[in-house]
Design a protein around this nucleic acid. Structure first.
Lengths: 121, 121
DNA sequence: GTCGTTTACTAGCATTTTGCAAGTGGTGGC
DNA sequence: GCCACCACTTGCAAAATGCTAGTAAACGAC
């Protein structure tokens, strides 16, 4: 992940696609978003149990990053972490279309290489 | 990038979003696709000159991977590499929507953090 | 209240991937 | 043939990742 010193992100260019990828261009950030889209709210341990098995340090650092970036937030802004789940902000919810298109693409184009891939709900 | 021994990709789960990210969940693969969407065809050196400055070894490995996966191909299938550009296959072209949605999202949601970001054409 | 369990992390370290710089080898133009 | 150039490859330092283990705080049971 590209990090700068002032911004949490080091922007590689002014292209919107490249900039989106500077933030979300890794597997884990978008899988966190996916979990929150599917389940609405999700705690730290629930996310860590999803089938892709993200390791705890990566989960912590990614949650911190996407929260800083305003993609998700705590359900109870002022409560302590325990059982205080995460949910998407308005910005995060707008990623649904991106993930839907990606899921659709994968389902139609990866079936041959990955026969057990499931469809989009 | 997750690699297996039989498939060029190690699938983390059967989720289509996760599987898409197993292939394209890094900055560089999708930036290559972006270049090919914008310009149609593009040679190795042209891609390496794009503003995000991908390094040559990563470019070579990513081109190999996405070509193996059938996302892009050589313009002249049987000719030698020199001046033989890459272009997207049907599968690759179908990624346009994914990138468009990502670009749209970035433009509306990252403007504050990244003021010089440009809009989608 | 205190004891044990659970949750949400952090820390340490081996492995993998990245990024940079420099090198190589085939090609096409002259 | 010679030379510039394009498409890579190689080597190595630095960063990110993936395990595994550890810890602190909070909740529940009693």
């Amino acid at each position: 992940m590209a990090q700068g010193k002032n911004s949490p992100v080091g922007w590689r260019s002014e292209c919107p696609i490249s900039s989106g990828l500077d933030i979300l261009g890794d597997i884990w950030s978008l899988l966190i978003v996916r979990d929150l889209i599917v389940y609405g709210t999700r705690t730290y341990s629930e996310i860590s149990q999803s089938p892709e098995k993200i390791s705890t340090n990566i989960l912590a650092s990614r949650l911190k990053l996407v929260t800083t970036l305003g993609v998700n937030e705590r359900v109870d802004a002022d409560r302590v972490a325990r059982n205080n789940a995460f949910r998407l902000t308005k910005s995060g919810k707008e990623l649904r279309k991106v993930l839907e298109e990606l899921g659709r693409w994968s389902h139609t184009n990866l079936k041959e290489m990955h026969p057990t891939i499931v469809g989009m709900e």
